[in-house]
Amino acid sequence: MKYTLALAQMNTRLGDVPANLERHLSLVEEARAGGADLLVFPELSLTGYALQDLTASVASSPQKDDPAFGPLLEASRKLDLVVGFVDEDARHRFYIASAYLSGGEVAHVHHKVYLPTYAMFDEGRYFAWGDCVRAFDTRFGRMGMLICEDFWHMSPPYLLWLDGADTLLLQSSSPARGMTHAPFLSSMQSVDQLASTYAGMFTCFVAHANRVGFEDGMNFFGGSALYTPDGEQQISAPFMDEALVLAEVDTNQLHRSRARLPLLRDERTALMLREMQRIVDSQITAAPSR
């Protein structure tokens, strides 16, 4: 099967959901005109990233009667969408979330499970921790969504792989940092290395949508890209500038890559689980080390 995937490397207005929604809808039109079947937006694309005390006031619910999701669900009748937003659950906990929309319905919602709360990041102050990593079926095969820090930990991509995801949809609002003599800031390179490594090790497709623009002095670097099951970068957007990139995904590549390199076939999940259980049990019984 072949389909066209699009990555929306956009800027956002901080805390202005109506303005960001309008931008989403215009990018949907642009992507559709280019023949896209699936359009991936970055992390918190409806709200902007460093929300701080704006968090509660920009939350949405992925339902048809929501002012932001109503038009987005309607738009998802034309092409599938992955949207970043603040999800407020029934008990008023706020999550950094991604929703996969298709055919006017919500196919899946992922809540970010790793909230960076160190250095320049303060997500744990404002958001609840997601507690679930699940793959889900789409009309383009089984996929999984992860948000930024989620894929700086190896376990969520690994879990999605075991859960049947053949495409990882990664969304970021990743700020550039780490200035050296190299022609990029080091975080730009790290994300590229992570994404291509996952694609190669899991012999799966990895699509990464990162935003651009500034929030105060933070500079979101873009560099959105699609990686093939051989770990190769198939297409990428420029660093730091807005872009809409489209790429044809040939899902038959999974067949060819896994015939060549049967890492999935040989993965020993029972061994992994047994050893994990032993490690967790030993950590529970052991005294804190000094």
Binding site: R13, L14, G15, A50, Q52, D53, L54, F214, E215, D216
Partner: peptide, 11 residues
């Protein structure tokens, strides 16, 4: 302390 917004709030 607990009234925290970026300067770029709303832009």
């Amino acid at each position: 302390y607990d009234f925290l917004y970026l300067r770029d709030w709303g832009t």
